[in-house]
Design a protein around this nucleic acid. Structure first.
Lengths: 138, 138
DNA sequence: GCTTGATCCTGTAGTAACCACAGACCTTAT
DNA sequence: ATAAGGTCTGTGGTTACTACAGGATCAAGC
């Protein structure tokens, strides 16, 4: 007896190839509840449809934009609710934007400090190092 | 029989309080080889001296500046070598500075993208969301 | 019908940099 | 003498994956 895979359905390896996602990561997203448990073949092989592919694309893009798994879970649960409003998605996006901006500000301060403490350094062969001094000082 | 703790030596809790470091983190830094195994009391309680405190301050400051444990290990091994030269420390610092600057650049691009995709959003109650569209689009 | 190589399955362990807890032991003060 | 608090060790949890190991299944060729 032969079973044919449902029209348009693909297995995990193919989904990984198409999305550029790591094979194991797809299973991970299923484990943490971002991807729904997919249909299976008789033998237990996962079968993904068009909308699974769209959902994975969404997740991957959101990750690229620095959203955490928890944030994406929130985004998806909003979107999954039959009648989501754009305002909720907007609010989450703005919150994330604020945290990104804050991180940039922090790193800039850090960059400045690193520049300052390395300024006094001749990078020479002398054992006196203003960088080390700056790191030890309180 | 009574043993008195060596003059100036303090135990882990006191070191944590003075440095602002978490108690367990001190043990962690010992485990990963940033802090040397300290002297112990008869009962096995750790005893830290002045230079241990300086070393911990160095580590904590370097962490604040975003150096990884591995980077700090390198810095410390340079400094620990009897005759280190300032040039080596300088090189590591510059490398770190470059990676910080790169991270800033990345985050700025991200910030820009987030601003762009949320610009078209009215944050209204309509179920059409340009943010979601942007996240799904490839 | 059978073999071979690719793909798939599951569960587990590893990564970075910690933090927190349990259960035992020690110290200090009353 | 005892109670409170500090310290010890080992282990498990966190985030977002990635990488196996060992076994089952699939597709193709002979």
């Amino acid at each position: 007896m032969t079973f044919t895979v449902a029209r348009g359905s693909i297995k995990r390896g193919e989904l990984a190839r198409r999305s550029g996602c790591n094979l194991e990561t797809i299973r991970y997203y299923e484990d943490v509840g971002l991807m729904p448990p997919p249909a299976r073949t008789q033998a237990g092989h996962r079968l993904y449809r068009e909308d699974d592919q769209r959902r994975l694309r969404f997740i991957l893009r959101a990750r690229e934009l620095g959203f955490s798994i928890a944030e994406i879970r929130s985004l998806l649960s909003i979107i999954d609710s039959a009648e989501y409003t754009c305002g909720e998605v907007y609010a989450l996006t703005q919150a994330h934007l604020r945290s990104v901006s804050a991180k940039i500000a922090d790193l800039k301060k850090l960059e400045q400090t690193l520049k300052t403490i390395s300024k006094g350094c001749a990078a020479g062969s002398a054992p006196e190092c203003p960088i080390v001094d700056a790191l030890i000082a309180d």
